[in-house]
């Protein structure tokens, strides 16, 4: 177990170095000269240009430049955003809780809806409910999330008036609760501020449903397949023949075994969601890492774009590491040679 964890840790460290290599290459791919970019194309005297190049290390050979870059990244230096004028990592860290809160809300919603439906589909295999769910899953997998977000804004916001306008994490005029976790729903509760809590929850509904939509189909499919596999096993027959009710066999035994791979897949999906939710944040003006990233793209703030890419990739790698290690703990059958 311990050697396995250590080996995975080393692998992730190597991966992070690899990620930095890719992002360094991306930095070099940015069109135009960095000095010209810095001055917005204004003419610069040769002396200043020389000095800037030396200061930024652009006069060094590429491998040296990369090592400098890697050193900076490891110390948390992702450069300064041209748009906000602040260190990029500070900007990202400040916005990270918003992204995590939305992602977790979406995942929670997907599980709450998807798990019962997955069981239902498996128990009524090839029945009308199963077919209906299959068609629904299929269509939901074909939906662009940014489009679904717009449809929700129109139907539930504009037409029905159920959701507040998409203007971020709190309705206008509601003060931000004191920062403890950075999750507005949690912080407002901790502060006993029910007005802020209700507003935070209401603002999160539509974006969370959008996030959940892409995941529900995955949950249903995985759990259905897992349940069907378990239901065909001997222990289920044994349980039934010794007189256990179907309910006890299905929910106490089969579901518990079937749920592990589903949860694994969902956990890995969280990493993908951090990337995919960029568009959802853009649609709902949700001030997370994704919206920051989109704004940076529009402002041609390449350092910020690549910095956000790097941060999300590293978090993605860490999530996968966590999932692997957790799985090794949970499932004693898995042996890692």
């Amino acid at each position: 177990m311990i050697p396995y964890v250590l080996r995975r840790l080393v692998a992730v460290a190597v991966l992070v170095v690899g990620i930095s290599l890719v992002t360094f290459a991306l930095v070099r791919m940015v069109p135009g000269d960095p000095v010209a970019l810095y001055y917005g194309g204004m003419p610069v005297s040769a002396d200043i240009e020389q000095a800037l190049r030396r200061q930024w290390g652009l006069d060094q050979p590429l491998p040296v430049q990369y090592l400098r870059y890697l050193g900076g990244v490891l110390r948390g230096n992702l450069g300064v955003s041209l748009a906000t004028g602040r260190p990029i990592l500070d900007d990202l860290v400040r916005r990270f809780p918003a992204t995590v809160e939305l992602t977790l809300a979406g995942v929670l919603l997907a599980l709450v809806v998807g798990l019962p439906l997955g069981v239902l589909a498996a128990l009524h295999r090839n029945g009308p409910v199963d077919h209906l769910l299959r068609i629904g899953s299929l269509v939901s997998l074909g939906m662009p999330n940014f489009w679904l977000g717009l449809v929700l804004i129109f139907v539930f916001g504009y037409q029905l008036g159920w959701f507040p306008p998409a203007e971020g994490r709190l309705a206008a005029g509601v003060p931000i609760p004191g920062r403890v976790t950075g999750f507005y729903t949690v912080d407002s509760l901790l502060a006993g501020n029910l007005v802020a809590f209700r507003s935070a929850l209401a603002q999160m509904m539509a974006p969370a449903i959008t996030v959940a939509m892409g995941l529900v189909a995955v949950v249903i499919r995985m759990l259905r397949a897992g349940m069907l596999e378990e239901l065909g096993k001997d222990y289920v027959r044994t349980g039934r023949s010794k007189g256990l009710t179907p309910r006890a066999v299905y929910y106490k035994h089969a579901l518990r075994n079937a749920i592990i791979p589903t949860i694994t897949v969902v956990s890995i999906q969280i990493g993908y969601l951090l990337g995919g939710n960029v568009l959802v944040e853009a649609v709902f003006a949700w001030p997370g890492v994704g919206l920051y990233y989109i704004n940076a793209i529009n402002a041609l703030d390449y350092n910020a774009v690549i910095g956000a890419t790097l941060l999300i990739a590293v978090v993605f790698a860490l999530i996968n590491l966590g999932v692997d290690i957790l799985n090794a703990f949970i499932d004693p059958r898995i042996h890692y040679a």
Partner: peptide
């Protein structure tokens, strides 16, 4: 290993960053 590196990024994000950098 190079392929693993491509898979280290959530794909939508990598596509957007590449497209942004390429123009």
């Amino acid at each position: 290993r190079v392929m693993d590196l491509l898979l280290a990024f959530p794909n939508i994000l990598l596509a957007m960053t590449l497209a942004a950098v390429l123009g």
